[in-house]
């Protein structure tokens, strides 16, 4: 009988471990914390090395603007979309490990809400649910720099994950995260070189790399996912080979991107019929999540409860330690 050759890979690097949230004992008010990262091998390949903590799901909540969500999601969330507290509760009901608050209402084109108003949304969510919190700015440099100090202070002690630091705009968010002891998301526009550059810039500005999570920018199934996959894979391979500036956990914006696809929300066309119309959105979001998990994603931001349920099942099935 011929022996089977050992094809397992040996990696010298490891994805860092990041804890999000703080319980009362740790100076916060969360019911529990969430730990991501720690893999010393490619996703789910336990025969190569440690696979680290299983990926987790954050449910996306906006401070305002729920009425602009696709009709199907508006039906699913119902009245909860009226305010961030109720919205967050719905997210926890749908299985959220964390809540991701996106401060869309601060965007100059969609409300231009103030730092104080955004801070109120943060407090409302902290009071409504006890899962850890991700706080995401509106993406406009000047406005983010204006609101994030107030938002960060409102969640001081809660060990949130805050985003995003970008190549041309990172100093303010680094300073507030350091001051209020939050974790940091570093964003790059689907560019591995910039992903690394943002991390070295933030590290040089004094932010500990081990408290950083990479957001490489996400694309949905059919909308550039191959490119996203290969960027994430390259980053992860570099990290596992010992590149300390790419050895951080990765966060993916799954729901937001999947529900921009016409397959997820447009009126019936081609094989999308009135009868199966409502299956397409959850399916699109599930498939997007599944692909991204396999290129190395530790934290998925999602929307649809069926997609969340599917993704949790997949994570459980792919995680060998659960059955070993």
């Amino acid at each position: 009988m011929s022996s089977i050759p050992d094809v397992s890979e040996k990696w010298s690097g490891q994805v860092s471990t990041v804890v999000i949230g703080a319980t009362a004992d740790e100076g916060g008010t969360r019911g529990r914390t969430v730990t991501i990262g720690g893999a010393g091998a490619l996703p789910f390949l336990a025969f190569d090395g440690a696979i680290g903590n299983p990926p987790v799901i954050a449910v996306e909540v906006w401070d305002s603007g729920g009425q602009t969500w696709p009709e199907q999601l508006r039906d699913t969330y119902g009245d909860a979309l009226a305010g961030p507290g109720e919205w967050a509760k719905k997210g926890v009901e749908f299985g959220a490990d964390l809540i991701c608050l996106r401060l869309m209402g601060a965007h100059p084109d969609s409300g231009d809400r103030s730092g104080d108003q955004c801070a109120e949304a943060v407090k409302e969510i902290l009071g409504a649910v006890d899962v850890p919190l991700i706080i995401w700015g509106c993406g406009v440099d000047e406005k983010d720099n204006e609101i994030l100090p107030a938002v960060s202070a409102a969640a001081k002690g809660e060990n949130c994950l805050m985003g995003t630091a970008r190549e041309k705009n990172y100093r303010t968010i680094v300073a507030v995260c350091l001051a209020d002891k939050h974790k940091l998301i570093t964003e790059s526009p689907l560019d591995i070189n910039i992903a690394k550059q943002v991390n070295i810039l933030c590290a040089d500005a004094g932010f500990p790399l081990e408290d950083t999570v990479i957001f490489p920018t996400t694309g949905a199934l059919g909308y550039g996912i191959e490119y996203v996959y290969s960027i994430q894979e390259r980053g992860r391979l570099a990290g596992l080979r010992g590149d300390k500036l790419l050895g951080q956990p990765v966060i993916c914006d799954v729901g937001f991107e999947a529900w921009r696809a016409k397959e997820a929300k447009a009126p019936a066309f081609d094989t999308v019929t009135d009868e199966n119309r409502r299956q397409w959105g959850p399916m699109w979001e599930s498939a997007t999540a599944m692909v991204l998990l396999q290129s190395g994603a530790e934290l998925l931001i999602m929307r649809d409860p069926v997609a969340i349920e599917n993704t949790k099942k997949i994570i459980e099935r792919f995680t060998p330690s659960a059955t070993a």
Binding site: Q197, R234, D243
Partner: peptide, 15 residues
């Protein structure tokens, strides 16, 4: 042997 970034000389020395 490494992935490029604008500060790659610094990145190589990081840590």
């Amino acid at each position: 042997k490494m992935i490029y970034c604008d500060s790659y000389l610094e990145a190589a020395r990081y840590g």
